[in-house]
Structures are given as structure tokens and as C-alpha cells.
């Protein structure tokens, strides 16, 4: 079965890397995966879409994903900029770095808090990608061990250790959440 995932992040938050880590983790588990950056030039600070496909069969298509089965939102602020539901298939799942969910099936995690607690900060921003990858692994049914392996083959040394820790904490702390009124 094909699962199509979209990540909405700000350029510099590591959305592309998160897609790659999860793709690598899925490949470690014997699945097929495809990680696609937003087609075009990288733009720090602007809204970026990254795509991830997971399947038990080879993945042939290469077009972008218009409506995702799983939509990850890397910053609460994104909810104020775009109508994110447009990117979600009916009955789809959202994973948010936020306190409240937005759809029926939402998962929330304080990825920014986790990143800050581990001092995962670059240019003043918490780098939430590995925490979000850990959180997304839950609904995607990818084991945290595979995510950690993928992180270890992406980063090295202390950086790998801290990022793996972020993913681990997020995997443990991510919770199903209700739609809130604050958004």
C-alpha cells in the first residue's frame, strides 16, 4: 500500500532532511521509499513543502503530492499562513509541532521544546526535524530503532547522538490531540 506524506516547514527547519531520514528508516525496514524536496531552489525562512512516499511495492510515480495521507506541520505559525486542510486527504492524519490538532486524526508534539532542551538550535531557531521525524514515525508505523539508525547514518558523533535523542523523546511524547480553538 502506498502512503503519501507531506511536510510543511519553514526553509531551514529541516523538512527535507526529515523526509530523507524517514525514507531511509523505511528502507531499513525493507520498504520502498521516495523523498522529494520541494522542486526548486531552497529558500530559508519561507514555507517549504517536502514529500515522502512509502510503500511495500516499488514506487514509480514522480509527480508532487497534492493531498497527503499524512501531513506534518513543523511550526504552529504555518496554520496561520496557509489553509493546511487543502493538503490533506479526507480521513488523513496530521502530525503537528503544536498544542492542538486540526483534524479528526491529529498527533501533537512539542518538537520545539524538545529541540531547545537538547540545545538543537541553529541561527536562533530550534531545529525540529529529528524530533518531528520521531513523532511522525508513530502514525507511519516505522520503528524508532530504524529512525535512530537513519539518523546515525545521516549525522555523526555528538550531533547524531543528540538528534537520535530528540527523535526518541518525540516518539515517546507524541500524543493524539483534539482540534483546539486557539488556531
Amino acid at each position: 500500500m502506498l502512503t503519501e506524506v507531506m511536510i510543511l516547514s519553514f526553509g531551514g527547519q529541516g523538512g527535507v532532511t526529515a523526509a530523507r531520514i524517514l525514507a531511509l528508516a523505511a528502507v531499513n525496514e525493507g520498504m520502498f521509499a521516495q523523498a522529494i524536496p520541494q522542486f526548486g531552489a531552497e529558500r530559508r525562512g519561507s514555507l517549504v513543502r517536502s514529500y515522502l512516499r512509502l510503500s511495500d511495492q516499488p514506487i514509480r510515480r514522480h509527480s508532487s503530492i497534492k493531498k497527503a495521507d499524512v501531513l506534518a506541520i513543523f511550526a504552529e505559525k504555518i496554520l496561520k499562513i496557509v489553509e493546511v486542510r487543502e493538503f490533506l486527504r479526507d480521513g488523513g492524519i496530521t502530525v503537528l509541532n503544536a498544542k492542538h490538532g486540526i483534524a479528526e486524526k491529529s498527533y501533537c508534539v512539542d518538537a520545539a521544546g524538545i529541540a531547545l532542551s537538547l540545545n538543537l538550535v541553529a541561527a536562533g531557531w530550534p531545529i525540529v526535524n529529528t524530533a518531528m521525524a520521531g513523532a511522525m514515525a508513530k502514525p507511519l508505523e516505522i520503528s524508532i530503532e530504524s529512525v535512530i539508525n537513519a539518523i546515525n547514518s545521516t549525522f555523526s558523533g555528538e550531533l547524531a547522538r543528540i538528534n537520535a535523542r530528540a527523535a526518541e523523546i518525540a516518539y515517546r511524547e507524541v500524543k493524539k490531540c483534539q482540534a483546539g480553538s486557539s488556531t
Partner: peptide, 12 residues
């Protein structure tokens, strides 16, 4: 090979 669709897309 197609720009981005292959050049920047990671596959198995």
C-alpha cells in the same frame, strides 16, 4: 534525467 523529479529525489 529529469530536473528534481530524478536529480533531487531520493529513491531506493
Amino acid at each position: 534525467l529529469d530536473a528534481f523529479q530524478l536529480s533531487h529525489t531520493a529513491e531506493v
